[in-house]
Design a protein around this nucleic acid. Sequence first.
DNA 1: ACCTGAACACCGTTCAAGT
DNA 2: ACCTGAACACCGTTCAAGT
Lengths: 202, 202
Amino acid sequence: MGRRSLHTADELRELIISASTELIQESGLGGLSAREIARRINYSPGTLYNSFENLDDLVLTIEGRLLDDLLEALSAVPKGGDPRERVHRLAACYLSFAADNPKLWNLLFEHYIPDAHGVPESYRQKFEALLEKVEDALRPLAGGLGADEIKRSARVLWAGVHGLSSLSAADKLSVIDADEARTLLDDLVRNYLAGFERTRSA
Amino acid sequence: MGRRSLHTADELRELIISASTELIQESGLGGLSAREIARRINYSPGTLYNSFENLDDLVLTIEGRLLDDLLEALSAVPKGGDPRERVHRLAACYLSFAADNPKLWNLLFEHYIPDAHGVPESYRQKFEALLEKVEDALRPLAGGLGADEIKRSARVLWAGVHGLSSLSAADKLSVIDADEARTLLDDLVRNYLAGFERTRSA
DNA sequence: ACCTGAACACCGTTCAAGT
DNA sequence: ACCTGAACACCGTTCAAGT
C-alpha cells in the first residue's frame, strides 16, 4: 500500500502514546504490545518504529510524561499556611497520584531497561525537581540545620511516602489498605517531622 | 522419546526452581522464559507443565521461598539489648536482603497476576508474620499505646523502610545511592521513633 | 507415568517493496 | 517520505504420540 499520510508525524506519535497509555491502564506493562497498539490505531506494526526506536523508548516517553504530570500536581499544592500542613499536603498529593492510576504508576518501577545505563538524564532531573519541592517544604521547619541535612531528610521522607504509596498501589499484597493509606501517611509524616524538628533544636 | 526418569518429580521441581532463580538473578523477570528454563535443565518445554500450572505459578513459588528466606534472616536478628537498636537492626536486615539480590527482590513487586485475586493466602500470612516482628520490636517502646496503634505504627515504619529499600534496589532512578542507603535508613528509623515515643508520653 | 516435539496463537523488530 | 506486510527469531501452553 505504501504511504497514507492520514496523520502528521506528530499526530501519529500522540496516537501511539495515547493508545499505549490506555493499554497500560487496562492491563499494565504486560498488556502492552507493539502489535496490539498497531491494531488499535489502525496502522501496521512496522509504523511504530518510525516514531519510536522501540517499545522501551515508547515506555520511557510515557514515563517522562507521567513524571511531568506528577510535578504539575505537586506544584498545584498551595504554598502558604502552616509548614507542617504543607508537607502533609504534598505527601497526600503524591499518594493520590499513585492511587488514581496504579497501573500507570507502577510502570515507573516495574519497567526495566536492559542496557542499565539507558535511563535518560531528564529522568533524574525530574526526580530531583520533585525532591526540591520537599526540601522547600522542610526548610521552614529546619531551624539551624544545614542544606545537606535538609536534602537528606527530604530524600528519607520522600522514600517513606513512596513506600506507602507503592504498597497501597500494588494490590498484590494488600498489607496496606487503600482506605487506610491516608491515615498511615499522616502518621508517617507527623512522626518523622517530630524527629526532624527535635534534631534541629538539639 | 517418552519417559526418562532421570530425576524424581521433586528433583525436577527443584531443578526448575533453581534454574529459574538463576535466570531471574541474571536478568530479572523479563529474562525468565519457559523455553530457556527447559534448555538449561535439558528437558523439553512441555515438561515444566507437569511440575507447575504455568509460569505464574512457578514465579509465585519462588516468591514464597524468598519471603521465607527474608523471615529467616529477620529471625536471626538478636533479641536482647536496646529496643531502639533492635528496630534499627531489623530495618538494616530488610535493606540488606533487598540490596543483596535486587533482581530477585524486585520480583515481589513487578510480578503481576492477571486474575487479580490470584495471590495465595500464604503470601499475606508471610507479610503479616513480618509485620509481627516489627510490632514485637516496637512494643517495648510503646508505653501506654494500644495494640492497634502499635500495629499501625509497625505498618507505617515498615512501609517507610520498604520505600527506601526498593528505591535503592531499583537502579533505574539512582535517587537513593546504595552506599548512602544505610545512613538514610537510620535517619528514618530514628526520626520516626522519636515521634512514636513522643506520642506515647503525650 | 512421564516426556517429547509439533502445533497454535502469539510476540518485537527489520526491511524490501510499493505508492 | 511514509507505510505495508512478509520474514525472522522468539514467546507460553497444549496435547497426541511415543516409551
